[in-house]
């Protein structure tokens, strides 16, 4: 861990100002990923702007009937929030599928978007990594890449985005609210994270100094027909090998609206609108689901150790859509019918 100073901001403007006046500084919310990476010498900010006194912890309705999550609301408070549970259970499920109770108590909703990849090579400063050190090379290509991307990767980087929450946010079409040196703006969720291309060092489209202040969920929550299916190497407290957020709106057996996003397959939450279009207006049958699944992996590319993900993604999509359509839940989830 490098040498750094710390200051605590009490208002958003102060935080933004503090960040811009300190070169090589970083915001720290929950700290669960930043401190982890600082101990690995991967992140080396010389100043930390502490956010935990900012008044951004509330979860409240928006005028258009949606819900606003304060950027500093914890993942736990969000997942267990009554409004989130009843209106956006997909989001609640996705959050509870990630990390551990302790981490969810610390991690913030804004910080969740800022999580960096779990790529082994990114984490190990003894190996080259274009994301960590642009131009040094991608060790994962030709290396041990079982946990790596099959969609949207580049020759510079095949890392995946590690979040569960973000997969649900992508499916729900959330909006990211940010404040920066040049004022406030909103970013559509699908435009927030980036594909690696030739600049894998950039995970997202935030401008320098910008701070996430909140997330807006639109009114539509797909609370009846949804599934967050997470496949991983152990039952809990593990990152996804593949995850699928599926949300459907049904009239009888006909799908009237559909959302489909995948985790563990790309550098960003992978939403496929073309696949969604293949679902809309169709009967909720296995055939329909298979067509959508095939569409998602159409351009997929496997590497030495992760080609299995192409087939697995297809099967996971079909399963998730089936569960969503039936209104049943992810089988492994223990919380759905246990609201005391």
């Amino acid at each position: 861990m490098n040498s750094f100073t710390y200051s605590r901001a009490t208002a958003v403007e102060d935080a933004v100002r503090e960040k811009s006046t300190h070169p090589d500084s970083a915001y720290i919310g929950g700290g669960t990923n930043l401190l982890d990476l600082m101990k690995e010498n991967v992140e080396r900010p010389v100043h930390l702007v502490g956010l935990n006194k900012l008044p951004l912890t509330t979860i409240e309705p928006t005028p258009d009937g949606g819900l606003r999550l304060g950027a500093l609301a914890t993942n736990a408070d969000t997942a267990w929030n009554e409004e989130v549970k009843s209106r956006y259970p997909l989001l609640s499920q996705a959050i509870l599928a990630g990390a551990s109770p302790q981490l969810r108590n610390m991690a913030t909703d804004g910080g969740n978007l800022m999580q960096r990849t779990r790529c082994y090579y990114f984490y190990d400063t003894a190996t080259p990594c274009n994301k960590r050190e642009p131009g040094s090379g991608c060790s994962a290509i030709g290396g041990y890449n079982r946990i790596h991307a099959i969609l949207g990767a580049s020759e510079q980087c095949i890392a995946t985005h590690p979040s569960d929450m973000c997969i649900a946010l992508a499916a729900l079409e959330a909006t990211v609210r940010v404040s920066g040196p040049n004022g406030d703006r909103t970013i559509a969720f699908e435009d927030f994270h980036r594909l690696p291309g030739n600049t894998p060092e950039r995970d997202n489209n935030l401008e320098p100094g910008e701070l996430i202040t909140g997330l807006d969920l639109p009114a539509k929550g797909f609370e009846k027909n949804f599934t967050y299916l997470k496949l991983r190497d152990r039952t809990s407290y593990a990152f996804a090998v593949i995850s699928v957020a599926a949300a459907l709106e049904l009239e009888g057996d006909t799908i009237t609206d559909a959302r489909l996003a995948l985790g563990g397959v790309a550098h960003k939450p992978w939403r496929d609108k073309e696949a969604e279009n293949l679902l809309k207006g169709q009967p909720a049958t296995a055939d329909t689901f298979r067509r959508a699944a095939a569409k998602v992996v159409e351009g997929a590319h496997g590497y030495e150790h992760n080609t299995f993900k192409i087939e697995l993604a297809k099967r996971a999509i079909v399963r998730a859509l089936k569960q969503a359509a039936e209104g049943t839940q992810q089988a492994s989830d223990v919380f759905l019918n246990s609201n005391p």
Partner: peptide
């Protein structure tokens, strides 16, 4: 423990990627 032979180095050298069971398993 997964070795990358290009580096002769174990790569999943942490408790997040070297999996041992948790209570739910």
């Amino acid at each position: 423990t997964v070795m990358d032979h290009k580096f002769g180095r174990y790569m999943n050298h942490n408790y997040a990627e070297y999996h041992v069971p948790v209570n739910a398993d």
